Structure formats: C-alpha cells, structure tokens
Amino acid sequence: MTAGSALVGAMATDGWQQARAAVVDWWRRRRPDAADDVGSELETLRTQVLGAREQSDTDTEQALAGAWCLRLQQLLNEDPALAAELRRLLDEHLAPARSEDEQAQGRPVIMKTEAHDSSRVFMAGRDQHITGS
C-alpha cells in the first residue's frame, strides 16, 4: 500500500521526473516488455493526480493510489522476491520525492504504555479531545 500511495504522492512534486525515471527503470529490469507502457501510464496518472489535487478531490487521488497498490501487489504475488527491491525503490526514490506532510503520514507510530492500579492512559496518534472527569 505504501508504495502505491508514495508513487501518487510523488507525482505532484518537483522530484517527480527523477522518481518516474527510477520507477520506469525498476519496471524495465522486472518486466522489460511493459516498461514503456508503464512510463506512459505514469504520465497519464500524473495528469489525473494533478487535476484531482487542483479540485481538492481526495477520493479520486485515493482511488488512483489504490489502483497502483493493486498493480504492485499483483507483481509481488507473481514474484515475492521483488518485495525487497520495491522497498528500496520506495525508500530511495518515492518517499523522498513526497512532501514533508505526506512523508510524515507514511511513518509508523509505535506507542507503548503501562497502567497500574486506578491509573488511566490516553493515547492518540493525532489530535485527542478528552471530556468528562
């Protein structure tokens, strides 16, 4: 899921051309016969993503990311050994091309707590509003 979202997120940035080149190169090494088509599809997808952002259409943007998540998942289902290479592509090219806000959304949050006796614990990954006593 992260790779598809990172791919779509990178499309609206100044680093898109470098990220696109890395994706097409990665694809060329895996499926040489489909690499040129993937490059063309990425350009079409970028136009759609930019249009969705211009219209503040997050549903369309999420759907486009979902479509690429499925496509990448199918590739991994066919060849699970590609997972490490896809992770490297994500870490080295796609994630750095995203905006700082989008990069923060993709980071895992690990929270641990321990409560004893009558204590209470309130944890949140974002905003938290507590009412009552």
Rank of each mutant, 00 (worst) to 15 (best):
I110R: 15
W26Q: 08
A65C: 04
Q62G: 05
E78Y: 03
A63M: 12
R126Q: 14
Q55R: 10
R120H: 14
R30E: 07
V38C: 04
Q73T: 08
K112C: 04
H116M: 06
F122T: 11
L50I: 15
A63Q: 15
A104E: 10
M123W: 13
F122D: 06
D91A: 07
P96L: 01
T44C: 04
A22S: 14
Q74W: 11
L70R: 07
C69H: 12
V24M: 02
A95T: 11
Q18G: 11
S119C: 08
T47K: 15
A12R: 10
R88N: 14
E100V: 14
P96F: 04
T2P: 12
D33S: 15
L94Q: 02
R46I: 00
T58A: 07
D59G: 09
G106I: 00
L72A: 00
S56I: 04
R87A: 15
A83D: 08
G125D: 07
L42H: 02
R98A: 02
H129S: 07
P32C: 09
P96T: 08
V24T: 14
L76T: 11
Q74I: 10
L50D: 02
S133Y: 13
A12N: 03
T113H: 15
W68A: 00
E78A: 12
G106C: 00
W68F: 04
G106S: 09
T13E: 11
G51H: 07
N77C: 03
T131D: 06
L86Y: 04
L82F: 09
R30H: 13
V49D: 00
V121H: 06
V23Q: 02
V23D: 00
Q73F: 06
R20G: 06
V49E: 00
M11V: 02
W27Q: 13
E102I: 00
V121F: 03
V38F: 02
D127M: 06
V8D: 02
Q128E: 10
L45E: 00
L7H: 04
A124W: 08
V24I: 06
V8Q: 02
P80D: 03
E100H: 13
R30A: 07
L72W: 00
Q48A: 10
A67N: 08
R71I: 03
V23G: 08
L70T: 12
D91S: 08
A19G: 01
L45W: 01
